[in-house]
């Protein structure tokens, strides 16, 4: 088990290096003078310019710049500043809680709604409930998330005033319920479909028939034999989504004006703030790698047939 964790972490290193390298070089291709961006387009004396270029390692070979950057990221260097002179990791640290809460809330909604609805649909396959959920989930999959977001924001936030229409900087968890639901919608549709198929397949499995044959009550069979087996692929799907939820938050955060990672990333890209952009993407990649490791381990816990030696 620990050997497997070590091996996976070791495998994650080239992925992390490669991903940061790609984003780093991409942002380096962007034209424009970073020093002018830093000083707000005011001319600077050659001495100051030289000092700033030295500070940001801009005179070095690009590969070397990347290594400097890596050192800062791996150590979460508090003195590592973006082009606006603000410490990068302080910004990320400030933005992470709200996006993390948003993603976790969305994950919880996804899990609860997706599994409950999917199970009911799967137990009575091709029944009216199954058909209705199929139609609804296909429609939800087809509408862009920001259209749903705007409509819900207008209805619940502006018209009926149930939730705050936008999320203030000093947010409370109730402010995030509506954005989290919007973020979760596409995933809920997929989780429902996945649970439904998985439950429906397990309903006709031999071990379920055996359980019925030996006289177990219906609910017991469903809880112990159908659900427990059906939820393995569902849990992995939900788990692997935390990363994509945090990235998908870029849209949701735009709609509800959440000052989170997505907004930070988008602002950094539009301003051409290379250090901040690459740092945010690196943190996202780290999160993704970490989550996929957790999911793999969870898989082994849930499914006793899988053993990592």
């Amino acid at each position: 088990m620990w050997w497997y964790v070590a091996k996976r972490l070791l495998q994650a290193i080239p992925v992390f290096l490669g991903a940061t390298l790609i984003i780093f070089f991409l942002t380096k291709l962007r034209p424009g003078d970073p020093i002018l961006g830093l000083t707000g387009n005011k001319p600077v004396s050659p001495e100051v310019r030289q000092a700033l270029r030295d500070q940001f390692h801009l005179n070095d070979f690009v590969g070397l710049q990347w290594l400097y950057f890596l050192k800062d990221v791996v150590t979460f260097n508090p003195n590592f500043v973006g082009l606006d002179g603000q410490p990068v990791f302080e910004k990320i640290g400030n933005a992470l809680p709200v996006t993390g809460t948003l993603a976790l809330l969305a994950l919880a909604m996804d899990a609860v709604i997706g599994i409950v609805v999917g199970t009911i649909a799967g137990l009575r396959r091709n029944g009216w409930f199954d058909s209705v959920t199929l139609v609804i989930s296909l429609i939800l999959l087809s509408i862009p998330i920001f259209v749903v977001g705007f409509v819900l924001q207008f209805l619940f936030g502006v018209k009926w005033g149930v939730f705050a229409a936008t999320v203030p900087v000093d947010w409370k968890i109730t402010d995030l319920l509506l954005p989290a639901f919007v973020l979760a919608i596409a995933n809920i549709a997929t989780t429902t479909r996945l649970t439904r198929t998985s439950v429906a397949n397990n309903m006709t499995a031999d071990h379920v028939r055996t359980a019925r044959a030996k006289g177990l009550a219906g609910p017991v069979v469903i809880r112990n034999h159908v659900l427990r087996n059906s939820l393995v692929p569902v849990v992995t799907y939900i788990g692997i989504n935390l990363g994509s939820l945090m990235a998908g938050a870029i849209i949701t955060e735009g709609i509800f004006n959440v000052q989170g990672i997505g907004n930070l990333a988008f602002g950094a890209v539009s301003r051409g703030d290379t250090p901040l952009t690459v740092a945010v993407v690196s943190v996202m990649v780290m999160l993704y790698v970490f989550m996929s490791l957790i999911v793999d381990l969870l898989y082994a816990v849930l499914d006793p047939r899988i053993r990592y030696a």
Partner: peptide, 14 residues
């Protein structure tokens, strides 16, 4: 793996 680890929307924006 490397390209997969970068979220599509974020990478595309860059």
């Amino acid at each position: 793996d490397i390209f997969f680890s970068i979220p599509v929307l974020l990478g595309s924006i860059v």
